[in-house]
């Protein structure tokens, strides 16, 4: 027979104030105006979304910000039905997706919504468009989700 031993319950909660810096700040200000910004590299011509300060391939500074399309194509997706866990900012069920916004060169990670949460709700290649929250808080969830079009 195995003996049960005690456990000690202790919660560690440490609030952080993460400095957004100039790039996230500018990107979030764009979201408040319902604009999604990317940054274009002069050297390799790639457009990265979200915008960033330097090209991860060429390490050139990216000074050229461009407003990118709010429509694109689902590259991949996952339907999460599973349990909610501590710290989750959006509660399941939801569909996360990699979305290639038109004329950009990196995949944008966000939710797909406006569909029944079902395993066959969506397929790779599905065209989607950004849907905005009415109230803007200047963060990533100002985009409510991307909904299927066409």
């Amino acid at each position: 027979m195995s003996k049960d031993y005690n456990t000690l319950r202790h919660v560690v909660r440490l609030p952080h104030s993460y400095a957004a810096g100039p790039v996230w700040t500018r990107f979030y200000e764009g979201l408040k105006e319902e604009k999604i910004y990317g940054a274009r590299c002069d050297k390799c011509s790639r457009i990265y979304v979200p915008a960033r300060s330097f090209c991860p391939n060429c390490h050139e500074n990216l000074d050229e910000w461009v407003e990118v399309s709010q429509e694109g194509e689902v590259v991949s997706w996952a339907y999460s039905s599973d349990r909610e866990f501590f710290g989750m900012q959006v509660k399941p069920p939801f569909i996360i997706a990699l979305i290639k916004l038109d004329n950009t060169d990196s995949n944008f990670l966000h939710f797909v919504g406006g569909v029944d949460f079902d395993k066959s709700a969506i397929e790779a290649g599905q065209r989607v468009r950004a849907v905005w929250n009415d109230e803007k808080k200047g963060h990533m969830m100002d985009i409510k989700y991307f909904e299927p079009i066409g």
């Binding site: 952080h16 339907y79 989750m88 996360i96 966000h110 990533m140």
Partner: peptide
């Protein structure tokens, strides 16, 4: 927390995608 943390439903979501 600026971007990707919103969308990561633990490890399975990423591996499923």
């Amino acid at each position: 927390p600026f971007y990707q943390r919103y969308f990561i439903a633990g490890a399975p979501g990423i591996f499923s995608m």
